[in-house]
Design a protein around this nucleic acid. Structure first.
Length: 492
RNA sequence: CGGGAUGUAGCGCAGUUGGCUAGCGCACUACGUUCGGGACGUAGGGGUCGUGCGUUCGAGUCGCAUCAUCCCGACCA
């Protein structure tokens, strides 16, 4: 186990990488840009899955699964979509290997070339819409609300653990509706589900907004996203929800007979979140001691470290801790007793802090005699000595407090780093410090591109909260009139 | 694909103007002492110095090539 991790202040990227690896979340795999998610990291992902799944199901969404491989021809049906993804697709061209006739090892068997190449899905719109065509005949078949948990592959040029890996895990929802209004409402509902999920469970204060046309998903008419702020002031897109209009329905010829018997194209949405959320968690809450996990998604909420010298002490303390563990579990919290006898307490303290466990309970002979334990909270690093009596109640409350406090801290950080900026000079200097800049924008792609070129800042979103952005003003760059502010930031 | 850097033990690194048996810290193994914030001692194990070719009496060290990784851009959830 590593002694220290790089400080955030020294090198944020390095700190992040170290933290992901040392907290035992994931590591680089031998395959370029891919990662191995380790059991501890995967346990967090499983919790996210479970919580999100429940939210989806309460809105009538069902899970399904579609193939990994997409015939090339499917992929080329929607022009904008293919333009958006063509550069980053893995392609299967053969289906067999053979012994190398010229030496050791194996080679691709040239006689096993596929008639039509298969694309490893970078997203599943095309295969799903070709399937939906068979499912949809009448207005009675609508809406269709499906989600799939899957892996996808995007051959990105540069990768980073969790934030941008070649292969990643995600969920993608794909819905079909009879009317435009219903589809637009669905896209909005799902982005709000994501926002609630991020705020309530991940303690991430996110901004909900529309993407500018330039930043839209390939093939969408409108893209909504949740944007989170990392501790270096950069933005991270943490989830997206797209209104796809009738683009895919037209490309894949998906029509239904309405109540009057007229054939109409269906309206579509798609929405997704990925293992990137894990990266968001690390970058938003982590400190120089390691990960800080909100209790709701922490795989272990309470860890107990017994301190002892003799076997008698050991047995007595374990008995107490076992009782505490059962009481906590009865309240629905996961607790672990770190009973490894080869490691010293100080080492364990540091290790569990690195892994972000929200609450630690330590107890030794002194506590045993006094009927107390030492409780340590990860978010503030504070320690208290409290009686064993009624401990489960206290911990229950404490976990709730920690969840709220992590959110409050992140919210304060974000709000302290959102600035209304009205001059181009201020914009240019401010952007160097990071943060979200609320500015007027003339609505043109030219201006957006110029600003990005000069400052590396992009429009993260046009917030849907009209209170923060709707007002008359002049574009920060061109000086042309503008009706609302948008958020500019540098991003991951 | 452009710019920069790095490849030496599982991890992190040192290795001088080429020189003799390739080293250090962590981790690992054994024993002992420790144990309330990342223990210590003693004794061990572990290396074709990324790969290939070259220069040389002699290459971890110099040259060329090649591969890989990381960082900064362009691209993206």
């Amino acid at each position: 186990m590593a002694k220290e991790i790089t400080s955030r202040a020294e090198n944020y990227s390095q700190w992040y990488n170290d933290l992901v690896v040392k907290a035992d979340l994931a590591e680089q795999s031998p395959v370029r840009g891919c990662m191995v998610i380790k059991p501890y990291g995967y346990a967090i992902w499983e919790k996210m899955q479970r919580l999100m799944d429940d939210m989806f199901k309460s809105t009538g969404v069902q899970n399904a699964y579609f193939p990994l491989f997409i015939p090339k021809s499917f992929f080329s049906k929607e022009a904008e979509h293919v333009a958006g993804f063509a550069k980053e697709c893995a392609v299967v061209t053969h289906h067999r290997l053979m012994n190398n006739p010229d030496g050791p090892g194996v080679v691709v068997d040239p006689s096993a070339k596929l008639e039509e190449e298969l694309i490893v899905r970078p997203t599943s719109e095309t295969i799903i819409w070709s399937t939906y065509k068979n499912w949809i005949k009448s207005w009675r078949d609508l809406p269709i609300l499906c989600n799939q948990w899957a892996n996808v592959v995007r051959w990105e040029m540069r990768t980073r653990l969790f934030l941008r890996t070649t292969e990643f895990l995600w969920q993608e929802g794909h819905t079909a509706h009879a009317t435009e209004q219903e589809a637009r409402e669905e896209a909005m509902r799902m982005v709000n589900v994501y926002a609630d999920f991020a705020r309530n469970y991940l303690s991430l204060p996110v901004v909900v907004g529309h993407k500018s046309p330039h930043e839209r998903f390939a093939g969408a008419l409108d893209t909504l996203s949740i944007e989170a702020m990392m501790q270096d002031g950069k933005a991270l897109q943490a989830g997206t929800s797209h209104f796809l209009g009738q683009n895919f329905a037209k490309s894949f010829d998906v029509k239904f007979a309405d109540k009057d018997g007229n054939l109409q194209y269906v309206w579509a949405t798609s929405w997704g979140t990925s293992t990137r959320l894990m990266g968001a968690l690390v970058m938003a809450h982590g400190d120089d001691n390691g990960l800080v996990l909100p209790p709701v998604i922490a795989p272990i909420q309470v860890v107990m470290v017994p301190i002892f010298k003799t076997d008698e002490e050991h047995a007595a303390i374990l008995e107490v801790m076992d009782r505490i563990k059962k009481a906590l579990e009865a309240k629905g919290h996961s607790a672990k007793i770190d009973d490894r006898d080869t490691l010293r307490p100080g080492f364990k303290f540091a290790e569990w802090e690195l892994k972000g466990v929200p609450v630690r309970i330590a107890a030794g002979p002194r506590d045993l005699a006094a009927g107390t334990v030492e409780v340590h909270r990860r978010d503030t690093l504070e320690k208290f000595t409290v009686p064993v009596e009624g401990l489960d109640e206290r911990i229950d409350i404490l976990l709730g407090d920690i969840q709220k406090n992590i959110y409050a801290k992140a919210l304060k950080f974000r709000d302290d780093n959102i600035f209304k900026v009205d001059t181009w000079d201020e914009f240019k200097s401010r952007i160097e410090q990071g943060g979200f800049l609320l500015c007027h924008w003339d609505g043109t792609e030219e201006t957006e591109a110029k600003i990005q070129e000069e400052t590396k800042a992009t429009i993260r979103c046009i917030p849907i909260d009209s209170a923060v952005c709707e007002e008359e003003g002049k574009c920060i760059y061109s000086g042309k009139p503008s009706h609302r502010r948008v958020i500019f930031a540098r991003s991951y």
